[in-house]
Amino acid sequence: MTKPISLLAAILTTVISTFAQPVKIKGSDTMLPLMQLEIEAFLKKNPGELNVTGGGSGVGITSLLDGSVDMAMASRELKLSEKLKFDEKGIKLNVLSIANDALSIIVNPQNPIKQLTREQLEDIFSGKITNWKDVGGDDMKIVVYTRESSSGTYEFMKDHVMNKKEFVKTAISSSATAAIVYAVSQTKGAIGYVGIAYVEPVVKAVSVSYDGGQKYIAPTFNNAFNKVYPITRPLFLLYPVEKEKNVKPFVDFVLSVYGQKLVTHKGYIPLK
C-alpha cells in the first residue's frame, strides 16, 4: 500500500521540480537596470526563470521578510530593526556585495554651480540653505528633490551625507529615480541625488568635497573605482541561506568576470 503512494510522491516531485518556480528578485531601483541586464545575459546561457522588480531597497527587504521573494537587492546595509526581524523569524541571510555605486548630486545644466562641500549639501538638503546665492550661485530658490523613504538611496544619503538629519519638509519626493532626473532636467533651481548609472547629459553632476573644500572630486568612473570619490557605496544582494541552491548559479554569474564586465557596461563600478 505504501509503495504506490511513495511512487506517486516521487512522480509528483519530479513533475513539480521540472516546472520549477521562477526565482523572484525585488528591491533597489538603483540596481534594477543592472539586474535586468545580468538576468538577460544569464538566461542566454542557463535554463530557468528569473523575475526582477524594483520599488526600493526597503520594499525588497520587507518582501524577503514576508517570504514573497527569493532574493532582495539593496543599496544600503540592513537596519538594526530589520536584522532583529530576520532574527525573530529565524531567517539566516547571506549578504553579498556585487558592485559599487557612486551617489551623484545632480543639478540643472543651466545652474552655474560646479562643486559643493558635504556641509553645504547637508544644509541644502535639510533646509538650512534655501537660495543658490548662499553657496556661490545665482539668486534663485533651491528646489530639493528626494526619493520616497522606501529608497535605499534616501537612507544612504541621510546617513552618509546629511549627518543623519531628516530631509527638509518642502522637499519634493518621487517614487522613482528616473523621475528625479527628469524633474531636475526641467527645473532650473533643482538639486537631487541619484546613482551614477542614472546620470545623463540632461543633468549636471557636481563635484563634492569631504574635507571642507580643499579638494573637490567629480563622480566619475575612475574616481569611484579608485575609491577617491567620497560618496561610494556597495550594492548588495541578500538571500536566505536555505534558498542558496536556487540562486547560487545566478549570483556566481554576477560575480564572474563577464558578470562584472556587465556592471561596468551599465555604468556601475565593478568590485575589482
Partner: peptide, 21 residues
Amino acid sequence: EPVRTITATIAAELGEAASGS
C-alpha cells in the same frame, strides 16, 4: 506649493513598511 495627499502617502509608503511596524 507642493502638497502630499492621504492616498499618495499610502501608495508610496505601504510597500516598504514591515507589517505590524
